[in-house]
Design a protein around this nucleic acid. Structure first.
Length: 780
DNA sequence: CAGTGAGCGAGCTTCCGCTTGACTT
């Protein structure tokens, strides 16, 4: 008979705790929730007070059996799931499913994995908090109602297999609205004036002082007039002030801030960060990676302190605890930190090493002294103008935490480096102007969301949890609401007026603007679904919806409200809207736009979301003659497409003429525009308009492809028609039974015979297999 | 990585949060 059984949520945690507790304790893990609403059914009986039907998912049955057996054999079962709403519910489900004896069951909690914390928890057990469990049930059931009542409306009204939910639909809304802001944005030009002055430095040598005018000019004329003035102006220091500035380190990592910094500093996707962090956690190198807490244990604080002292000295230490600002944070765990601060680096893959070092630095820096800077501001007056130039110099007096870690910002490339040193200057001193220029600048539109900046925004709104940020981003992409894409920038000219000596010169340069990589863009389906939900379910789509229901869940947790009355209140408002929307008949399909009439047939031309995505349609379904359909051309949206653009899509495929007695046609296929001749497809190069391709041009392309094909075949064998030596994009290779094998550089491809070919194939096969094996080993 | 060039026709799809492996690519 085992004396004590402790059940926690995570197996890695179980392993650590077992070490602390000694041999009287066996520690097992529940691997998260063991029971949930049925996967396929609605599973909520609204009539019977929202009674849920729970089930143990099939992949959890074996585990539950094992836990049950272990519980039977123990004198005392300690339910040690996390100290938050979900954790409390896990304990309650365990209690019910394992049919635990109340006399031999205790509930304990700890939010840091240290020996003292755990021993203390064992000494102060409590009962399961039913109110907290009910708050979780309310949360779960509300999410199921929203998801399972809204999604079928979308299947009927928009497209099958779509989904809506409290979290995902708001995430899509953010992206749709940002895209509209970007499109509505009109950039305003202005002229920014900068000057380079000269002043003697400490040794009497001339050094540059860079300064910026305190205002920008709206028009070129104003800028020009100002430069004219500067021709005969004298410049002198009007005022000079120096003040100390302190900078404090950022708090240790939570899931959200780790995802943001790993994206900015290491270029990781949100999912990548979580995968690498999971491995670090499982190998015991960092604390739990799904957390909303910035708290560090006393043990960790002490470890940081001694690390800082030993590496940098007493002066760099400043122990501090951060407070969570996040809405709805539950703080069941510590912040994300190394488990052993003395490991500055670790062994592992390069990704693991880089993420670990990021976590190590952030943690250490959070326990270091402020950086002390001295900021000098010099205002420079102009003898014949009211304007002033401002020169800023910054000197680091004491680097403090900056020695270890500097937080990044999304717009880092926009920030100019201000940390310049100014030469000694005194009030009244006159300066020589070397060059003054007015550069045309344009106001910037708000940036589109990246994965990481979307997570930050969701967290700010209190929507979603650390465990769901990454899955939410993947869901909205899987449903086809959002794509990750690059928006190509456009080239824009800008003017520079420069005053040097006594001459003003004017030059025009070009810059690329709006070039954004790997940003989240809404699709047509995303836009239509969002507008539909916004029109019919504004409450759910409200950015404050989650925050307001969370407040009610908190009241349930505090025992101030019944969870069923919270549910009833919500459902009575929500469900009638569902019925009404589902049964509403409308003239047009959701998201449909009528563009006008087809000049040839006179029939209406419309765009909408079809069964397989956005389509253009000429005519209507009830007509005797079936309507004509075409897919929306790439890069166009049903929101903005014009009648002309829509009609263009029906002009292809078109016949150009005859070549070698076979017709030549142009069309647009899955992989872009093509020329077709004798069932051979030739891709039309990027950037060329298929509508502009003439017969001559098409024949040229066909012949060019033939030539390339001839060059492609280096050698064939009569005995083995399956095997060919070919010339590809990446050099010569052997094609054999649908697979390709690289030919080593040391071999002349023409000299290969069948036997040697097979040798090459064998060699390549072996190579790829050992590579696979190595990769598999690394995983473990 | 090495080439590709469609067009449904029944029945199913779906939520959020807690946790890892066992599967393919």
């Amino acid at each position: 008979m085992q004396k004590n059984l402790v059940i926690v949520e995570s197996p890695a945690k179980a392993k650590t705790i077992e070490k602390f507790l000694g041999e009287d304790y066996k520690v097992l893990s529940s691997y998260g929730h063991i029971r949930d609403l049925k996967k396929k059914d609605f599973s909520i009986d609204v009539e019977k007070g929202f009674e849920p039907t729970y089930e143990i998912p099939s992949d959890k049955k074996k585990l539950v059996g094992e836990l049950k057996a272990a519980a039977k054999n123990a004198d005392m079962v300690w339910l040690a799931s996390d100290e938050d709403r979900e954790g409390e519910a896990i304990s309650w489900h365990l209690y019910e499913v394992l049919e635990l004896d109340p006399k031999r069951t205790k509930r304990i909690v700890f939010h840091e994995i240290t020996k003292t914390a755990i021993l203390k928890a064992i000494e102060t057990p409590r009962d399961i908090n039913v109110n907290l469990v009910n708050a979780q049930q309310a949360r779960r059931i509300l999410d199921r109602i929203v998801g399972f009542e809204l999604s079928p409306i979308l299947w009927k009204k928009v497209k099958p297999a779509l989904s809506a939910g409290r979290v995902q639909s708001v995430a899509v809304r953010l992206i749709v609205e940002r895209e509209r802001e970007v499109h509505a944005f009109v950039s305003e030009p202005s002229y920014r004036v900068t000057a380079i002055f000269e002043a003697p430095d400490a040794d009497g040598n001339k050094t540059e002082v860079r300064a910026e005018l305190d205002r920008r000019f709206k028009t070129k004329e104003e800028a020009q007039a100002f430069l004219e003035l500067c021709k005969d102006a004298e410049f002198s220091i009007e005022d000079i002030t120096t003040r100390p500035v302190k900078k404090s380190p950022a708090a240790p990592f939570t899931t959200s801030t780790l995802q943001q910094e790993a994206a900015r500093k290491l270029g990781f996707t949100v999912a990548q960060t979580m995968m690498v962090a999971q491995r670090l956690y499982e190998s015991g190198q960092i604390t739990y990676m799904r957390t909303d807490s910035v708290n560090l244990s006393d043990l960790a604080l002490a470890a940081c302190k001694s690390t800082v002292i030993s590496l940098m000295g007493e002066r760099y230490v400043k122990t501090r605890q951060f407070a969570t600002k996040t809405k709805g944070a539950q703080e069941a765990h510590e912040a994300i930190r190394p488990t052993d601060m003395s490991n500055e680096t670790i062994a592992g893959t390069s990704q693991e090493q880089r993420l670990y070092e990021l976590i190590w630095k952030r943690t250490v820096a959070s326990q270091m002294a402020e950086a002390e800077l001295e900021k000098t501001t010099a205002t420079i007056s102009i003898s014949n103008s009211e304007e002033t130039f401002v020169a800023i110099g910054e000197v680091v007096i004491f680097d403090g935490y900056l020695r270890v870690y500097k937080e990044s910002y999304d717009d880092d490339n926009e920030q100019e480096d201000e940390s310049r040193l100014l030469p000694p200057l005194s009030k009244g001193q006159s300066l020589e102007s070397k060059e003054i220029s007015a550069t045309q600048r344009f106001s910037m539109c708000p940036p589109r969301y990246t994965e990481a900046s979307l997570v930050r925004k969701l967290e700010e709104l209190g929507i979603g949890r650390p465990s769901t940020y990454a899955p939410t981003i993947s869901t909205v992409q899987q449903r086809g609401y959002v794509v990750k894409g690059n928006s190509e920038g456009v080239k824009r000219p800008y003017e520079i007026l420069k005053l040097k000596g006594n001459k003003i010169t004017e030059t025009v340069k070009t810059e690329t603007t709006g070039n954004e990589k790997s940003k989240l863009l809404p699709t047509d389906v995303g836009i239509v679904v969002n507008d539909f939900l916004m029109a019919f379910f504004p409450e759910i789509m409200d950015y404050n919806f989650t925050a307001s229901v969370e407040k009610e869940f908190d009241e349930v947790a505090e025992g101030e409200k019944e969870w069923t009355s919270v549910m009833k209140n919500f459902y009575d408002g929500f469900h009638p809207l569902v019925d009404k929307t589902m049964n509403a008949k409308s003239e047009h399909k959701v998201g449909e736009r009528i563009l006008g009439n087809d000049p040839v047939s006179g029939k209406p031309v419309s765009v909408k979301i079809g069964r397989f995505g956005p389509v253009i349609q000429i005519g209507i379904a009830d007509d005797e003659e079936k309507p004509k359909f075409a897919h929306l051309p790439k890069g166009l949206s049903i929101e903005t497409i014009t009648l002309e653009e829509a009609l263009d899509s029906f002009k292809l495929p078109k016949t150009l003429g005859e070549y070698e007695d076979k017709t030549v046609t142009v069309g647009v296929g899955r992989f872009g525009p093509y020329v077709r001749h004798n069932n051979v497809f030739v891709s039309i190069p990027k950037g060329e308009d298929p509508m502009e391709v003439t017969l001559e041009k098409a024949i040229e392309m066909i012949n060019a492809k033939r030539e390339a094909a001839e060059k492609k075949i280096i050698k064939t064998f009569d005995k083995e028609p399956d095997l060919q030596i070919l010339n590809g994009r990446y050099g010569p290779y052997i094609a054999y039974q649908k697979k390709n094998y690289k030919i080593p550089e040391s071999v002349e491809p023409k000299d290969l015979n069948l036997e040697t070919c097979f040798k090459v194939i064998e060699l390549q096969k072996e190579k790829s297999e050992t590579r696979k094996r190595v990769a598999a080993k690394k995983k473990k």
